[in-house]
Design a binder for these strands. Structure first.
Lengths: 239, 239
DNA sequence: GCAAAAGTGTTACCGTTACACCCATGT
DNA sequence: ACATGGGTGTAACGGTAACACTTTTGC
């Protein structure tokens, strides 16, 4: 019953699919590619590709991330395995098992599409219409996971440039959660959590929008988890 | 760059590995099988097997769960995908990508090992020695995940029989987390969380150990998440 | 001056923590 | 009687929520 010795296995194609998320103009955006062939020709899909014989899924995901974004260095980007999608009929042509990943980008390079990659575009998270295959579900799962991890981890800084203001960090939470947060309370929570952020010593300040007081700059700290968590306001159930 | 049309994929074997956890005699136990062939002959390993051509990984995992435990009905058991392990060298013989699952059992049928399955045994979570392949890591990941989910979900009831006492539920937390909890506070927390547990109306009572006052019985409620969470006491860092 | 964004301070509330204490049962 | 496990009560603490208010910039 061990099974391994039989070699009586069915060949599967193993791929990775990437939900690459970033903030653009105050809205959550996803990196999507337009399919050229059937099935789903002309439909938007998550970027992805085959896992090569000498690669782990993580290695393949980071390679695809570099190819699709056109970035020279993706080693510092947050990349996280979501789960594996393996329904037998998820691809009509053949048996494809896909390991899905979520990636978080800070500043979002413009339309990109470098090299031999198909045209990749940033589209707003809401209003992508139905995606190819089961990619709507993968994208929704990615959003759920990221939203949940903001509560108990320092993940939010992965959406920010190396140096950022507390206002930018707060906008990450508000955009992903779709809720407004109280600024004074958010400040206190972030600043009193050891290792979440550390001030940039140069006492530098910078402008975010046009007007307003310049904000102090912070860097991501060394902590990875938040204790106690920063819980999102509970959804108001319709009475 | 779409890739799909090329059919230039490498064949992978896709398997599932199961970390089946239960509580026996107040200690966390894992279901393990002893390997008969090389590599790792004579070593304990997680139960698992190939994903069949018409199965999803979830279907395969539930089938394996039934086969390895010998239980007639495993439809009500908690089964949850953990993550996928795909290092190219994780099996020395061939390229095997494994989707790992965690399963939680209530009352733990005895040594089991029914049908054509290899001898499966319950072993204590601590003291299993090194397992075959990367199964130590999978098992540790399963334990981490379950421990974390106890904080913000009603998962603990999956370790309990359909009707249980609050003392039994508390022992689930204490065993998985390895920490003692204050009984009065635990009671309040569980009872004031809407939908976590509901009392068995028959006002029935039962004995857990030998002595002591009979405890009231509860069933799992309809809620799945805990708001606010039941946080485990923070680890005391060595000063 | 006015709007906009950053930053500080204060109070009330709520959940948890750390206990002390009582109840029911078996030996 | 006493040990064992179930169940109730309560005061202190800590973190959060919901504000009011000041400061610094651009127009």
């Amino acid at each position: 019953m061990d099974g391994y010795d039989k070699y009586a296995y069915e060949p599967f194609a193993v791929t990775v699919d990437l939900a690459v998320l970033t903030l653009r103009a105050g809205a959550l955006h996803v990196l999507l590619v337009e399919r050229g062939q059937e099935p789903y020709a002309g439909t938007w899909a998550l970027p992805g590709g085959f896992v090569l014989p000498d690669e782990s899924a993580e290695t393949a995901a980071r390679r695809e991330l570099a190819e699709e974004t056109g970035l020279a260095d993706v080693s510092g980007l947050h990349l996280e395995q979501l789960r594996t999608y393996s329904e037998p009929d998820r691809d009509p042509r053949m048996r494809v098992v896909s390991v899905a990943f979520a990636a978080l980008l800070p500043h979002a390079p413009e339309p990109l599409g470098g090299g031999d990659a198909a045209q990749a575009r940033w589209l707003p998270y809401d209003g992508t219409g139905p995606l190819a295959f089961d990619h709507d579900r993968i994208l929704a799962d990615a959003h759920d996971r990221v939203g949940a991890k903001l509560e108990y981890s320092c993940l939010a800084t992965a959406f920010c440039a190396p140096e950022f203001t507390l206002g930018e960090l707060q906008r990450v939470y508000e955009t992903v959660w779709g809720t407004a947060l109280d600024r004074p309370n958010f400040r206190r929570k972030v600043l009193t959590t050891p290792g979440f952020v550390e001030p940039v010593p140069g006492g530098v300040a910078r402008l975010t929008g046009g007007r307003g007081k310049p904000a102090a700059l912070y860097r991501a700290g060394t902590a990875t988890t938040l204790h106690p968590p920063l819980l999102r306001p509970p959804r108001e159930g319709p009475a």
